[in-house]
Nucleic acid binder design. Structure first.
Lengths: 202, 202
DNA sequence: GTCTATAAACCGATAGAC
DNA sequence: GTCTATCGGTTTATAGAC
């Protein structure tokens, strides 16, 4: 693992616990074992450039994680409910500290750093596209699939907030069940313009 | 408006734009027109005590706002969709900077300040209770009503994140429509233990 | 590429005059 | 209750030796 990678990894970990504003560059340097000079060597743009790299790395990582989970789900409805239940277990197992730190930084930078805001927007858009494609592959019409794909992301992110604050699995379990209900309705109303569905509607 | 109130109001406004960690006490003092000494006079506990007061004030304010909107909605399903659409317009009208700042601070303090984490938990619990009561008043069985009440809050908070990051109404509109679909299903399956519903099931 | 030293500004918090 | 000055520590960022 290169020095650069260790710096980015340390930054991602610290941002997850303390937020973007709450973490100093010296702290990142200390955690990664690199001196501050190396940090500015790899990221001449300073804190913003480092955060952009960490966001992009973790954003892609979260997406691969979710895609891997959803791919192995038997059907749309139980896939939604099960993946939220799995998220609940995972978050609980870390003592409600590790969920998704992208949202924390996204809120912090939304009105303070236009470059970083755009990085988070790019990440969320990719997540939406990925989820929408999965929903569509199970036979939901494109527009409805996008709505459900968006609601999957917003519901998951919102449930993470309450789960961490309340230190409870309930927000994730309840949100998963309600989104599964929405998915059931989306399946019941078949595509107005029929498409060949790859996944089974059963 | 008392000096104390002006300090709390200024803190709430600044936390909304820059987050908890991103706002200094000197900044709050300057914005409110009060000297730092007064700030420590009213809040001997310093930054944490001030944030707790601001959180409680804004938390109650948001709850009253949502309750006032939901009360006047004709039915459960369109009430959910319409209130999300209204939120989309409101957030868009502020240039996507003012949505709900409780979530920003909740994420920042979740693993850094146990006292503040508990304040945010209390606020979220009250929101859930309020939404659950509204859902139940429209004829949904208690357990399902709580699930939908939770999903309303998580969906709204999550959609606020994406709306601000993407600078788009779409996350709020899509989430509102999906939660309305979930509500439709909750109404279709009547309470196992029938209760006298105050709201119309139609 | 690695590392140290340092500048200039800001932080939360306190002391103490008024 | 109001206000100022200040302490000790931290921040981002840079300069420059190795």
């Amino acid at each position: 693992m290169s020095t650069r990678d260790r710096i980015v990894a340390a930054a991602a970990q610290l941002y997850g616990r303390y937020g973007y504003t709450g973490v100093g560059l010296k702290q990142v340097a200390a955690e990664s074992g690199a001196p501050i000079g190396s940090l500015y060597h790899f990221f001449p743009g300073g804190k913003e450039e480092l955060a952009a790299a960490a966001l992009r790395m973790s954003g892609a990582g979260y997406q691969m994680l979710v895609e891997g989970i959803l791919e192995n789900m038997p059907d749309l409805v139980s896939g939604i409910e099960q993946s939220f239940a799995l998220a609940a277990e995972t978050v609980a197992s870390t003592g409600y500290v590790d969920a998704c730190w992208i949202e924390t930084v996204a809120l912090e930078v939304a009105s303070t750093s236009e470059p970083l805001r755009m990085v988070t927007a790019e990440i969320f858009e990719q997540w939406i596209d990925s989820c929408t494609a999965w929903v569509e592959s199970h036979g939901v019409a494109p527009e409805k699939a996008r709505e459900l794909g968006i609601a999957y992301v917003t519901g998951l992110e919102g449930a993470f907030i309450l789960a961490r604050s309340l230190q409870s699995r309930e927000p994730l379990l309840a949100t998963g069940r309600m989104l599964a209900a929405a998915a059931r309705e989306a399946l019941a109303a078949p595509p107005s313009t029929p498409v060949k569905a790859k996944g089974a509607r059963r």
